[in-house]
Design a protein around this nucleic acid. Structure first.
Length: 278
DNA sequence: ACGGATGTTCGCGC
DNA sequence: CGCGCGAACATCCG
């Protein structure tokens, strides 16, 4: 479940439970996930290294270890960091396992392997997120600044919001939810947004991220669970259901190759291209 | 069994 | 150069 909130959850759990711990053993089964570094080098660099802190920008997680060792990762579509304690079930599809000096383990699990983990120096950690837009949680979003960024493109506002160079960390779910909260149609040309719409989007993005984070905290970063959980989102994955605001049937469309859910009444399309009837 | 899935990147055509 | 589209990556789930 990797958008900004999931990565932030991973960051918090890792820092709370694992900061100060020393890596006693490294396991990295051959896969494309751990990339640009040999397994031998990965092991030699990380073994006996102490985890100092975990940072995040957008969807990128950065772990700093003693000895100038940095680890950068992206969760892709199905990646997840798991804090494991002795006695718990072992997850499948583990692409990287760090065993720590207290017997706990940090797993990077990723069935689809669209995610990645790289090794770098601590100094290079910052460069890993160069070029990304502001992080809504760390930096906050400035309406003026976002408006400037959005009006530079002719793309649909949803596609622009999901562009990591515009804002870092927003994916298909957060964009869908935020635009519904902001009452802005996802296909609205970013170029034509008014100040008040951008202001609503800024607020909506912050609320959506906060809500998702709260929901994740309730559930914890434990292996298993989540398939039995019900859909925690307001409109994402709810096409065909009644709009929670007005009761109209939620519609579905494709933008930038991604499924988008929206309400034709609450999110009016520009130029009445989708007039409301009866 | 078929189709879609929370992401990113690349090539192609306009 | 911008932008939309489809494909690719690999696996699981309903």
């Amino acid at each position: 479940m990797p958008e900004l909130p999931e990565v932030e959850m991973a960051r918090q759990v890792i820092e709370r439970r694992l900061a100060g711990r020393v890596v006693s053993r490294v396991r990295a089964p051959a896969s494309r996930v751990v990339r640009k570094v040999s397994r031998a080098r990965l092991r030699s660099r990380l073994r006996d290294a102490r985890l100092e802190h975990a940072r995040r920008h957008g969807k990128v997680l950065m772990l700093a270890f003693s000895g100038q060792v940095g680890v950068v990762s992206h969760l892709g579509m199905s990646g997840k960091w798991l804090a494991w304690s002795p006695g718990e079930a072992l997850p499948s599809h583990v692409r990287l396992a760090l065993e720590l000096d207290d017997g706990s383990r940090l797993f990077y699990r990723d069935p689809r392997m669209f995610g990645w983990v790289e090794l770098c120096t601590e100094d290079e950690l910052a460069g890993a997120v160069a070029g990304l837009g502001p992080d809504p949680l760390n930096d906050g979003l400035d309406p003026q600044d976002l408006h400037q960024r959005l009006r530079r493109t002719r793309r649909a506002v949803k596609v622009a919001l999901m562009d990591q160079k515009v804002v870092a960390g927003i994916g298909n779910i957060q964009a869908t939810e935020a635009l519904f909260r902001a009452r802005v149609h996802p296909a609205w040309p970013a170029l034509q947004l008014q100040h008040r719409q951008v202001a609503r989007i800024v607020e909506a993005v912050e609320i959506t991220i906060e809500r998702t984070l709260e929901d994740l905290k309730r559930r914890g970063l434990r292996y298993q669970s989540e398939k039995d959980a019900t859909n925690p989102f307001v409109v994402y994955g709810r096409a065909g259901e009644p709009c929670p605001e007005c009761g109209r049937r939620l519609r579905e469309m494709t933008l930038g190759g991604r499924t988008t859910v929206y309400c034709t009444r609450c999110q009016r399309s520009p130029r009445g291209s989708e007039r409301t009837r009866r």
